[in-house]
Design a protein around this nucleic acid. Sequence first.
DNA 1: TTATTCAGTTGCGAATTACTACTTAAATGC
DNA 2: GCATTTAAGTAGTAATTCGCAACTGAATAA
Lengths: 163, 163
Amino acid sequence: MDGKLREPLRELASCSLPAALEAMGERWSFMILRAAFNGLHHFEEFQSELGIARNILANRLGRLVDHGILTRTAMPADRRKIHYQLTDKGSALLPTMLALRQWGERWETGFPASPVLVDARDMRPIGPIDVRAHDGRVLTKHDLLWALPEHVDYGEAELRAAE
Amino acid sequence: MDGKLREPLRELASCSLPAALEAMGERWSFMILRAAFNGLHHFEEFQSELGIARNILANRLGRLVDHGILTRTAMPADRRKIHYQLTDKGSALLPTMLALRQWGERWETGFPASPVLVDARDMRPIGPIDVRAHDGRVLTKHDLLWALPEHVDYGEAELRAAE
DNA sequence: TTATTCAGTTGCGAATTACTACTTAAATGC
DNA sequence: GCATTTAAGTAGTAATTCGCAACTGAATAA
């Protein structure tokens, strides 16, 4: 990796990773997100499932709502009950969550986690979350390079659009 | 997503996500990892680049070393200098880091981050980090299902191996 | 009307984080 | 050889966050 993955200059400032971490970097955020992906919707469900302190849970849910990752609506049938639902923005974190989970399976626990996420069409497990080229080829770290925008080829379509 | 991505039973306990978060869930871990991916190797480099407090940086680097994500070696040329290097385990976090970064670009900052990670072969940016089926088809949340191990089809090769 | 449930909030001690200054050991300059 | 600089941390302390338990308030159930 070293020598291939090398940064041309100090451009670390303009990266979206800090912004992403501001929304998702706190201690329980990913666990709450996973519970939401698994179909939990209510405060008490999250609380009993995760064993998280109530004030922390309230704080995290509020923060996720503020960041547009969850919506918060009182249920019509029972207006005490608050329904937390993933937004499109929240759902878009699925690849991140799965990549982290797959890494944990491979390098930490050493065995596949349950439940397994499968393709509903054939009930086969999803493939590994990989880095791929624009055409879908899987790339390894040796195929990769950090480049400044002016050295990047954005492809014909985008170039024509810019003309 | 709701109704498709539904968990059959309470199996949240046996998931590798908590294990992954134990290694990488702390406040500065992903930023340090990103700096390492971008070619930084020394304490003072991380410190001045990230602006992190020195004791926290020392603690995080030590933790990442303990978890086998970085190695720590004194350089032969100048034995004051400690060389921090990503291990294979640490490099394996690249898809996770990129997925999070791409999410931040799309949903938080709204513009592509610099530097750009490109395929060295053609200098085109990498594609989006997606969830894919075993055969490489991109899957959306509507194609996915959480399943218990006994309902999963692990494919012919694995089944033959188990006979 | 009284009890129970849901979704929080409050108070408080413990743990973690951040800021600044100090240390230690190796290399460099003179 | 001796003083200086540099790299990589420690130490002390203030601020913040975390976690537990008990409490509140509104809505529903008995």
